[in-house]
Write a protein that binds this DNA or RNA. Structure first.
Lengths: 255, 255
DNA sequence: GAAGCCCGTTCGGCTATGCCGAAACAGCTG
DNA sequence: CAGCTGTTTCGGCATAGCCGAACGGGCTTC
């Protein structure tokens, strides 16, 4: 791990935390001298990853980050393969559909199909949700695609914060191929998700339905449609198995 | 400029060029030894900016890039201030609206309102267009927000590739506050754009209408609505002038 | 089936790289 | 106008990281 590159990426992470930061703030958060930080930030600015506001001298993220993220999406086979199925699922179930991949102990939404009722909905692509608090995240977690978070951060009153209870759910996810979430991330919103396997049989992502709490639980037709879509996408990606394998091949046959 | 950070960012740029690359490809494009490149890429992988495909060993961009880009958008005041006006413009003119900022000699779309006729349109947020070939780009270029490209890359038969002809247009843009583009970026698509000034009076972005070639040229009502929106957003951002000032204060009064 | 090849990866020594302290500079505030 | 806060520049020292060479796994070829 190269020190200065690591520091640069951590500087970007710091800038993710707030709209804008001063050089000194970045420096102290990184535990570095301001002059050291200056060199790093300067390089990031030269590439457009960071911009310095002309008047205040403060630093913000730059447009090159957006380009990078967009290219990532364009190159993501998981996304392109899933989009037709997501559209189909929306029409069939009337629910919003989201597709997510793992990033450390979070789930990142890489595709989002708004529910077809025409209501105004914000685009969710790019948002990050702690894996333990959303359905797609639990699906990823259950199949070893996500790192275990060291602390289960509470997001609503319903959020699971007890590792043991989470583990119990994850076992069920592996058995049924479906993960559920009831107002654990945002109040009034529930979700149901299924893991997606890629070539090699390991989980590469998850696809899920998101519905208002009033429409929960979902009926059997929606559950079947979701499972069917997840299995179909997995096959398209070259997986021979579904649900995905678990990398840590611990046998649960005993339970 | 810190060497290793610069190299890391250039490695990311290389990965933007193709879906996936081998370590050797990245190394040779950077002009570095494979082992040197390995350290850099390894660090990028550790932060999720790059992922290594488990089976092939090839490298792709990672989900952290998406998160970064999304945070950039969320923190962009230009975007949040412009969104209501973009929506208004769409309804008023029936055209698609895009908002862009400068990145080196390109324009990056940071907001996109599809035309309201209900046709299936792809999301354009994050796409990058050479500044000299699109209306928003010309608006940025005219006000010194974009770097001059060293070579005007041809995109369609209509693309301006002669720097002198481009310069003539840019002078007109500064005079009228509007930049036009007729099938210069993609065939069958025309655009009209106006610069947006931020606090300090310099151009921070541009807002533009995009229409099929069949509907070109736009009528006076659309032109006025566009200019009005650009001026209104500029005022909201704290600019006291519109059109924006030009940083290189070269006098054009003589012409 | 074995040998060769092509990659990705690891290791160690040398030196160039970038880290830090201190000093200059600019922008605000009192 | 002077004092302050915070960004930026500069130079010497030390270390971080660069490269060449060797290792190991996967795949093709003979």
């Amino acid at each position: 791990m190269i020190q200065s590159v690591d520091r640069a990426l951590r500087a970007l992470a710091v800038l993710q935390g707030a709209r804008r930061r001063s050089l000194g703030e970045i420096a102290s958060e990184l535990g570095l001298a301001p002059s050291t930080t200056h060199g790093i930030v300067r390089t990031l600015v030269a590439h457009g990853m960071v911009v310095q506001e002309r008047d205040s001298g403060l630093y913000r993220l730059g447009p090159a980050t957006l380009r990078l993220g967009n290219v990532y999406l364009d190159n993501l086979e998981l996304r392109s393969r899933t989009l037709p199925w997501a559209e189909d699922l929306t029409r069939r179930t009337g629910c919003a559909v989201r597709v997510a991949v793992a990033l450390a102990s979070d789930a990142v939404v890489v595709a989002h199909e708004p529910r077809p009722d025409g209501s105004r909905q914000m685009a969710e692509v790019g948002i990050v949700v702690p894996a333990h608090a959303c359905a797609v995240g639990k699906a990823l977690l259950a199949h070893g695609a996500c790192e275990r978070p060291d602390r289960l951060r509470r997001m609503t009153g319903e959020t699971l914060t007890d590792p043991r209870r989470l583990e119990t759910q994850l076992v069920a996810v592996r058995r049924t191929g479906l993960a559920a979430e009831v107002e654990e991330a945002v109040l009034g919103e529930c979700g149901l998700a299924a893991p997606i396997a890629a070539a090699g049989g390991l989980a590469a992502g998850a696809i899920g339905l998101v519905v208002p709490a009033a429409e929960w639980p979902l009926d059997a037709a929606a559950r079947d449609a979701l499972r069917h879509a997840a299995r179909a996408v997995s096959r398209e990606l070259g997986s021979e198995t579904w649900p995905p394998l678990h990398p840590a091949a611990e046998d649960e046959a005993a339970s």
